[in-house]
């Protein structure tokens, strides 16, 4: 189970820089996601780790060993593809056995692994079926079993859940995480779905335009975004531009408290659900629109031509047009790095 180091990797396709000088470290046995919008370079980076692409610059290390020049078949990796990429003419069982057979594993050991994986992933009843006789979720499991059958130290996931419906996605997501803990492998997971990234990862690497915008644990990256892009891409965010003086920024809603020195121009950011509704609140605004979401309530509050998005428990019953007062905890407000020149 190797740890992975990416050192100064850049990738150029013709005139386009898909990756510009990316460095990151994946600890042994960790589950990390590469998160970003399409075209951010996340899949390119995954293909470089797998060995399908050779980077224009930089190195890839597994446990300190340089594998940059190594072919995919010689790397300790297995990939789960977005389209599943099952062999359409081979049965479920033969698909799973493909890797061990190519690696000339002992027959008994191959059979043991295949049976074990089919058992674990609930594929035993479908062993003899061809992939096109299976549902999307089942195909996804076959792809996963096929990757795990070579007992890889690193499993690479390329948006493996994007073709599944929402409910199945939650289920398979949990299964993948369970399996990763149980079997033990280093996982690199590519997705554009921030909920997936937050729910599964030990560490999230947020990519934008071929560079790592921010990295950190799910909580850190959600509650402490450092840039406008990070604030915006992961969930909803409220932003305020203006000067900070005396530990607060004056806004049409009232003073937003912040733990930062005075400055002429900064951008503050906080998440909609950190808000506390209270009669004694220092901030206030008019409720322009209410959207009941079941478990929670989305409130769109306006003042001075600006709109904030607040999220409160679904048990509140607030009519549109009402004026509400609220507080924002000082520790929940962050100053964005690229606020001053934005």
């Amino acid at each position: 189970m190797p740890g992975i180091d990416i050192e100064g990797v850049a990738m150029r396709f013709g005139q386009v820089d898909a990756l510009k000088d990316v460095s990151l470290r994946v600890p042994e046995g960790a589950f990390v996601t590469l998160l970003g919008p399409s075209g951010c370079g996340k899949t390119t980076l995954l293909n470089i780790i797998a060995g399908f692409l050779a980077p224009t610059r930089g190195r890839v290390l597994f446990d300190g060993q340089d594998v940059t020049g190594l072919r995919p078949e010689a790397r300790d990796t297995a990939m789960c593809f977005q389209s599943y990429a099952l062999f359409p003419h081979l049965s479920v069982q033969e698909n799973i056995a493909f890797g061990p057979r190519q690696k000339r594993l002992e027959r008994a050991e191959t059979a043991r692994r295949v049976t074990g994986l089919m058992e674990q992933l609930g594929l035993a009843p479908h062993a003899a079926k061809l992939p096109n006789a299976l549902s999307g979720g089942q195909q996804q499991r076959v792809a996963l079993a096929r990757a795990l059958a070579v007992a890889p130290g690193v499993v690479l996931f390329d948006e493996p859940l994007s073709n599944l419906d929402a409910k199945l996605r939650d289920q398979v997501r949990t299964e993948i995480r369970d399996l990763q803990r149980r079997v033990g492998f280093t996982a690199v997971y590519v997705t554009h779905d921030q909920a997936e990234a937050l729910a599964m990862s030990d560490t999230v690497f947020l990519l934008n335009g071929g560079v790592i915008e921010q990295s950190g644990g799910p909580r850190d990256i959600y509650f402490r975004p450092r840039t406008r892009f990070a604030a915006d891409f992961i969930g909803a965010a409220n932003l305020h531009d203006g000067p900070i003086s005396g530990g607060a920024m004056d806004t049409p809603f009232g003073p937003v408290p912040v733990d930062a020195p005075d400055a002429a121009h900064r951008t503050l950011c906080w998440r909609p659900e950190v808000v506390r509704l209270t009669e004694a609140g220092a901030l206030s605004g008019k409720v322009a629109h209410v959207a009941f979401q079941g478990g929670w309530l989305d409130l769109f509050v306006t003042a001075g031509g600006q709109t904030l998005r607040l999220q409160v428990s679904g048990t509140h019953d607030i009519p549109e047009g009402a004026t509400i007062r609220f507080d924002i905890p000082r520790e929940a407000v962050v100053v964005l790095k690229d606020g001053a020149n934005a």
Partner: peptide, 26 residues
């Protein structure tokens, strides 16, 4: 021929001939 199937075969350790048989020939 699906490039991801070719990649999958290589990724799982197939030789040139193995890739041809698994990804191309069918």
């Amino acid at each position: 021929v699906n490039q991801e199937v070719i990649n999958a075969a290589r990724d799982l350790g197939a030789s040139g001939w193995g890739v041809f048989r698994a990804a191309f020939w069918p």
